[in-house]
Amino acid sequence: MNKKVETYLENLTNWHSELKLLRNIALSCNLEEDFKWRNPCYTHQNKNIFLLFNFKEYCGITLFKGALLKDEKSILVQQTENMQSARQLRFKNLEEILENESLIKAYIFEAIEIERLNKKVKTKSVSEFNFPEELTEIFDKNVDFEEAFYSLTPGRQKGYLLFFDKAKQSKTRISRIEKYRNRIFDGKGINDCVCGLSKRMPNCDGSHKQLET
């Protein structure tokens, strides 16, 4: 058992019983317990299998490669339309978890087998993402910026393309591109730490907020 997980559970104001039960189910599946991304994380031979999470309306499990599960009961949830790999098992009360314990274990064991076989989720390539016209126009005017963008890892490129394209108005897309211009030149992704204080490098964990007070 991981002490950070113990602390996490002790400090919960809701979903305490539900997540404690899910934790026991995870440990009964012979998974190692860790604490990553501010959540209990369960691994098999150092490979991530799933996280426990809690939101206002529900709690549950996020399976890292949930998209590869058969999901014969059609209970897995795709959190957002752009979520390509992870899928969630969501619960709204303790009874739901108790009633579905055998099914939860079956999904966990399937996820472990997927990782054991080293199966990969086929994700969209950068070229398959919608490319905002405004970004193309800026590239035409600034070759150095274009080179900086394409020097980013594919994952970082996808993150920016999704964020820029999500804006409904052209002026908003332009504003977003300009706002993140320096970050792109620095080789940073949209969620990367730029203040140097994060304890979850290279990801931002909100530590920069203490600089704003």
Rank of each mutant, 00 (worst) to 15 (best):
N2W: 01
K4R: 12
N14M: 14
W15V: 00
L19M: 11
L22D: 02
L22W: 03
A26I: 01
N30I: 06
R38K: 15
N39H: 08
N39Q: 12
C41D: 05
C41G: 04
T43E: 07
N46Q: 12
K47V: 12
I49N: 01
I49A: 03
Y58I: 03
C59Y: 00
K65I: 08
L68V: 06
L68G: 05
K70A: 14
S74H: 05
Q78T: 08
Q79S: 14
E81W: 07
Q84F: 07
L89H: 00
E101G: 02
S102P: 03
I104A: 04
I104C: 00
Y107I: 06
I114Y: 01
E115Y: 05
K120G: 08
K124T: 05
S127G: 06
P132W: 07
P132V: 01
P132C: 04
E133T: 15
E134C: 14
E134Y: 12
F139Q: 03
D140H: 13
Y150D: 07
P154T: 08
R156V: 11
K158S: 02
L162F: 12
R176Y: 15
E178D: 12
K179M: 12
Y180Q: 10
F185K: 08
K188C: 02
K188G: 00
L197D: 07
S198F: 03
K199G: 05
D205Q: 06
G206M: 08
K209Q: 15
E212Q: 13
